[in-house]
Simulated assay, not measured.
Amino acid sequence: MSGGEQTILVTGGAGFVGSNLADRLATGGRRVRIYDSLNRPGVEANLDWLTSRHGELIEPVIADIRDADRMLQAARGVDAAFHFAAQVAVTTSMADPRADLDINILGTFNLLEAVRAQAAHAPVIFASTNKVYGDLSDCPMRPSPHGYHPDHPDLPVTGIGEDRPLDFHTPYGVSKGAADQYVLDYARSYGLRTAVLRMSCIYGQRQMGTEDQGWVAHFLIRAMRGETITLFGDGYQVRDICDVRDTVDAYLAALDRIDAISGRAFNWGGGANNAVSLLTVIDEIGRVIGHAPKVEFADWRPGDQRWYVSDTARIDKALQLSQRRGWRDGLRDLAAWLETQHAPAQPVPAMQAAAL
């Protein structure tokens, strides 16, 4: 089926990754049905951007993923579904675990049942999280000037593989982990073509970074405004950060190869080449904006991993993916985009940022 004849459902399609994926789909001529409650501050701008760029190829459905009837209607006639709608913050899940459960578990169930009833041929590709592996507290970590790294033979520096046992921590980890398993089981139990990407830290354009989620953009926004960045913990936590453009490539490749990967979960992130500590990112932000950001420290947050790096060998092979962008280049691209979106308290000229 050609792209122009397809309708693709993207739940959470006005959000960060969802809007980037929707843009790529519509650019390729597909109709994109954006299902989003627009509850997250700022996402209306993403939806306006999509409709202004693509016109009638974007079909907004403003509704909550917990509404089973609206979800059933939205799944009618779709050729594939990407599921990004979620409660995304550990802190929010601790404060309101019932809402976290309803959105992440019941919402995912609603989508799966809607697709099963209305479009059983349609692939469902779900955005899961590295939090399904818990805080890795059973594995010793050693600090270094460049951040924590594993001091255990079962944790290679190449990263966490899919064979690592699941270990749900915090209500967020439990809800996303349960949804992850529902998506995989609907391939086993009902024959749906499903796949799961367990994502590490994704960053890039159209990210509404906050203290609770989207930390790379959040750090940049705070620094560009001359505001203080709060680091929870000691700042030596390591993550494999990944540009959203590479992430969209992975999701599109998963759709193209769904018959080969159906019923499987993959770890996704920047990989070992993009594994970096929070403090190292802050140092690089200082180089990009021309002055050191202001930083303060606070207590560790529940379930925070000292080190998490995705071993992406399995997904790279299955989807024939190329090497990810280097995180420094991606950070500069994000800073340049943010300059067009935000009014920093201490403006950074674009030429200066590009030259550093």
Rank of each mutant, 00 (worst) to 15 (best):
Glu162Ala: 03
Asp69Cys: 09
Gln237Glu: 15
Asp329His: 13
Asp316Asn: 15
Arg116Pro: 09
Ser128Glu: 00
Ala354Leu: 15
Ala122Val: 02
Ile261Tyr: 00
Pro145His: 10
Arg245Met: 13
Met141Asp: 03
Phe266Asp: 06
Gly77Phe: 08
Arg314Gln: 14
Val309Gly: 07
Ser262Trp: 00
Val90Gly: 03
Ala335Trp: 00
Pro302Trp: 03
Asp243Leu: 13
Arg53Ala: 14
Met1Asp: 12
Gly15Met: 00
Thr108Glu: 11
Ala74Tyr: 02
Phe219Asn: 12
Asp79Tyr: 01
Pro156Thr: 06
Leu47Pro: 03
Phe232His: 15
Tyr251Trp: 10
Ala313Ile: 04
Tyr133Trp: 12
Gly159Lys: 01
Gly330His: 02
Ile315Met: 13
Asp67Ile: 13
Gly226Cys: 14
Ala119Val: 05
Asp180Phe: 03
Tyr35Gln: 09
Val90Lys: 06
Ala117Glu: 14
Val309Ile: 09
Asp299Met: 07
Leu319Cys: 10
Ser144Pro: 11
Gly326Arg: 15
Leu334Pro: 02
Arg53Gln: 14
Val78Arg: 01
Gly263Val: 01
Ala345Leu: 15
Thr280Val: 09
Arg33Gln: 08
Arg245Leu: 14
Ser310Phe: 00
Ala298Trp: 10
Arg66Trp: 03
Asp100Thr: 13
Thr7Pro: 00
Thr11Phe: 04
Trp49Ile: 04
Arg287Asn: 13
Thr312Met: 03
Asp48Met: 14
Asp311Ile: 04
Gln320Pro: 04
Leu278Cys: 11
Phe109Asn: 09
Arg332Gln: 14
Asp67Ala: 15
Arg287Ala: 12
Asn273Val: 05
Ala187Asp: 08
Leu356Lys: 15
Phe297Asn: 08
Arg245Lys: 14
Gly55Val: 09
Asp243Gln: 11
Asp135Trp: 06
Ala187Val: 02
Gln305Met: 14
Ala298Arg: 15
Gly107Asp: 10
Thr170Leu: 01
Ile34Val: 13
Phe266Asn: 05
